[in-house]
Amino acid sequence: MSQRELDAAIQTFYAEVFDEGVRLTTRSPQGRLEFERTQAIVRAATPVPARVLDVGGATGVHAAAFAVAGYEVVLVDPVARQVAAAARIGTFVAQLGDARQLDFPDDSFDAVLMAGPLYHLTHRSERLQALGEAQRVCRPGGFVHAAAIPRLVAFAAAALDQDLLVNSLDDWLGLLRHGTPVPALRFPGGHFHTPDELQDEMTDAGIRNVTVVGLEGPAGIALETVAEVTDADYSAAQQLARTFAHTPDIRDFSNHLLGSGQA
């Protein structure tokens, strides 16, 4: 679908179909692991006091946690229903906005988290535009963090859906070769990355010293299939995620990649 159609699908998906508010909290242990790993990486790079922009911040799960920790936080999201939910928390600023055109002056923030927009943008030019905007509003030396969905995990998730097996071989090859979502996928994805591709896009957008890690590690997919795990199992998943975060190929088995670099 075109980017205009995808933008419309995003509005419907997050306002009417999928509750993003529970994804990082109660939906599965994978969400908890993604949340905790993201928080740890952003906070380690940019300690308090600092001003953080949460781009595509949905209902404010990350923003609320940053605010409690002492950060000054601004959340931007394109879905009005999600912004309204985030605003009700009351500990940070929440406003409508698009990652491709941020309404802030240059050098306004100490850190920018973009956990969502990249995998909803089909064309490389628009992803570079969003990353360039994040780089622009982040102060020199501040950190930009951008999440992406690995195409290997996207392929596995699609392949296990019986309703998607009717797609042609060209569709499957398009996903593996180019990161193009398989048609009829419920999730309004625009693109799925390889780690090298994410690093290259961030670098081409002017972000320096970029590193890409696997967030949830090789246990993330398993954690997404269960409602609860023991403390020991969760600790083991955390250890796997930390141990293999930078390991080539293994990081592709995480549910999400996170690229980090300096503006």
Rank of each mutant, 00 (worst) to 15 (best):
L160P: 01
V182Y: 09
A158P: 07
L165W: 12
R186H: 08
D170G: 14
F187G: 08
T203M: 09
V166T: 12
R177Q: 06
R177G: 14
P150S: 01
G189T: 04
A148G: 04
V166E: 10
A146N: 02
N167M: 14
H191T: 01
D204P: 02
W172F: 07
V144N: 05
Q199P: 02
Q162D: 14
A205L: 03
L175R: 03
H193F: 15
A156L: 12
L165A: 10
F155C: 09
V144Q: 03
P188C: 11
N167E: 15
A158Y: 05
W172I: 09
P188S: 12
F192L: 07
V182K: 01
L165P: 04
G189Q: 02
V153T: 09
L152Q: 04
L160S: 08
F192Y: 15
L152N: 01
H145N: 06
L152G: 00
P181W: 00
D196M: 03
A159D: 06
D200I: 09
S168M: 09
G179W: 13
L185Y: 14
L185E: 14
R186T: 09
L175G: 01
R177E: 12
G190N: 13
T203I: 02
W172P: 05
A157K: 08
L160Y: 00
D200L: 13
T203R: 10
V182C: 02
L164V: 08
R186E: 13
F155Y: 11
R186W: 01
A159Q: 10
A184R: 13
A158D: 12
L165Y: 06
I149S: 02
A146T: 06
